[in-house]
């Protein structure tokens, strides 16, 4: 079976379940020690990646993309036509950014992103996904009860607004372009970017009106 046999893997999973240390922190520690001993890992490189995903690659990138689209119609057109090319202009290409599709909210349409089969996410523009995005509850419910999920996030979307759920079943990755809120005329891109939340780019937030989030 060329090393790709499902039954073999199921058996290995059982063995690992029985023999690995009882706590995840201990399992990860054992894995890291083993990889270092085998010459497959430099722990300083692990530190460097953690720093990158804590300090640099996160939703601030996505917010900069959104703010640019709100203030530059030509960029917005390029972003909606070819998300990957547009984020590459800003230096935000990378992990899971090879086939990015940006979907636009309008007064009549709300978009919501999910991956029901695993946890696909546009890492190079949004960073590390929240845990809830990877839970069984979100993955199960987002496609079937998107309005109920949105209500839990504090967004009551009227039936006059159509909901489009994007289930990331292939290597396309999705990001929502939220609507620019009223009352932000004349704001520059940096001020606008501060309004844009991670959840708005996943689609679990819709209304970015200034001050609204602070009240909650």
């Amino acid at each position: 079976m060329s090393g790709h046999d499902s039954h073999t893997i199921a058996h290995i999973h059982e063995e690992l379940h029985s023999h690995l240390p009882p706590e995840p922190a201990l399992r990860v520690k054992a894995l890291e020690s083993l990889l270092v001993e085998k010459g497959m890992l430099d722990p300083a490189t692990v530190d460097a990646w953690i720093e990158v995903f804590t300090e640099e690659i996160g939703p601030k990138r996505g917010a900069a993309v959104v703010a640019r689209a709100w203030t530059d119609p030509d960029f917005k057109a390029r972003l909606l036509a070819d998300g990957t090319a547009a984020i590459t202009e800003l230096g935000f290409d990378g992990w899971a950014g090879g086939h990015l599709k940006v979907v636009e909210n309008t007064p009549d349409v709300h978009n919501l992103i999910v991956c029901t089969l695993c946890s696909c996410y546009p890492h190079s523009v949004l960073g590390i996904p929240p845990n809830w995005y990877k839970t069984a509850a979100y993955r199960a419910r987002a496609v079937r009860d998107p309005r109920g999920v949105l209500a839990e996030f504090g967004e009551d979307v009227p039936e006059s607004v159509a909901i489009r759920v994007w289930d990331s079943t292939a290597e396309l990755r999705y990001m929502v372009l939220p609507e620019r809120p009223a009352g932000t005329e004349g704001w520059d891109a940096a001020e606008l970017a501060d309004l844009v939340t991670r959840n708005a780019m996943i689609g679990t937030a819709r209304d970015l009106t200034p001050g609204k989030g602070e009240a909650g």
Binding site: E32, W132, G154
Partner: peptide
Amino acid sequence: GPIDVGEPEEPFHEAWEARMLGI
């Protein structure tokens, strides 16, 4: 059940999670 909408914003909630991603 319901979604944990109050989850903190930090990318990692446990040190071992960050370690595993870095590995």
